[in-house]
Design a protein around this nucleic acid. Structure first.
Lengths: 222, 222
DNA sequence: TGTTCCCCATGCGCCTGTTGATCGTCGAGG
DNA sequence: CCTCGACGATCAACAGGCGCATGGGGAACA
């Protein structure tokens, strides 16, 4: 875990760096806003601790510039409580959390951990499956084909999900029926064909391959 | 946020429930240890307030049984100070925090909030969530839309909070019901639709997107 | 007693699931 | 190589379900 501290009060910056290093983080420190922006743009940090009052470029601008460039590294802002700067403004510019000086070291560490955890969950906890040009986010129930979102109905999504979970394997119509339709359903297997047809129309014909007499197979990336 | 209070002193339990409900939590109360264990095992509570001296099964055993079953719901234990039971033992059995009777209501609420924050509920320690033009301060229970504060009722806020905690993911009506309404409620899922409707009216129609057949999704800014 | 909030019920409109018919395709066997 | 039968794909039409809006009744405050 790499952290960047952008803070011009050198004593504070140093003591934070020391403590966070002891926690097991790799910590870099800069004392200037512009310098911080460069560092953050060029290296992949896991989190930024960003003061607002900075020489070179103030924290708000560093933050909004990073965001404008598409950088979504978690940012913890440090604000002085004397009111010249507003906490809300920090959040508006795209910071993820703020802390008002003076703060306790324990609280800072807790917030940092929380932000890192949040990031971790946001990416890891939501199982996103990528198969070539197809991206399926089961938590958000969204499907993307080459950056374009594809709108699927509930049943279509459920069928696709079965294929994704067993990508590359042959899945029979009966199995799809068992997993997607409820127990009581005793209709025709043709219903599966109908949905495969719909998926092919929306996602491209080559994605789901027919295995005659056995079922279908979702093509894995190649 | 659903809380379960397990406390056999009925007057105390009732007054806590009343106060916490006013804070916007969905609160269930039981007066018996065994009953509490069952409830906690079967429903997804966000926090337990657990007395030690209880009929049926004492608080220690309730706590350790839950932990043994892999349930890691935050538990706040209430201990009498007369020494028959030991605070440390409570923590040993897997409680997250304890409070010695008599305690002030304010302290209790503070501890509860701290635990919920610490546990994060998937959201980290920051009480403020920013999603595009929406800013939700869960600690202060205030909501801002583009610098204007929006007045929400307790239930409206509770529903919104669920969405915010799982922003970008699909949340089903059932899940909302489970977390916002208490267990005594067994009404129609339609009630969720009514509240989503109210939120859309106050916060704009595009914020909460309907995912037909699955639930709703709070749009993340981007 | 008035106001606010919460829950329920109703009706409506649109989307979606399902069906059955028809058309296309594959492969085995003559 | 051709034919035929079986399997699969697609389409259109219908009915029911799902989600939304709205208003009223009732409870809980002040």
């Amino acid at each position: 875990m790499r952290l960047l501290i952008v803070e011009d009060e050198k004593r504070l910056a140093l003591s934070l760096a020391k403590g966070l290093t002891a926690e097991g983080y790799a910590v870099d420190v800069v004392h200037d806003g512009l310098e911080g922006l460069h560092r953050a743009s060029e290296s992949p940090y896991d989190l930024l601790v960003l003061d607002i009052m900075l020489p070179g470029m103030n924290g708000y601008r560093v933050c909004s510039t990073l965001r404008a460039a598409g950088n979504d590294v978690p940012i913890l802002m440090l604000t002085a409580k004397d009111g010249e700067y507003d906490e809300a403004e920090g959040l508006d510019t795209g910071a993820d959390d703020y802390l008002t000086k003076p703060f306790s070291y324990v609280v800072l560490v807790a917030r940092i951990k929380a932000l890192l955890r949040r990031r971790g969950q946001g990416a890891g906890a939501s199982p996103v499956h990528v198969l070539g040009e197809l991206r399926v986010d089961t938590a958000a129930r969204r499907v993307f084909l080459r950056d374009d979102e594809v709108a699927l109905t509930a049943k279509e999504f459920a069928v696709l999900e079965q294929f994704v979970l067993r990508a590359g394997q042959v899945v029979s119509k009966g199995e799809i029926l068992d997993h997607v339709w409820d127990f009581a359903y005793d209709g025709d297997l043709n219903i599966v064909e109908v949905y495969v047809s719909a998926l092919r129309r929306k996602l491209g014909a080559t994605l789901i391959r027919t295995v005659r007499g056995a079922g279908y197979r979702l093509e894995t990336a190649r």
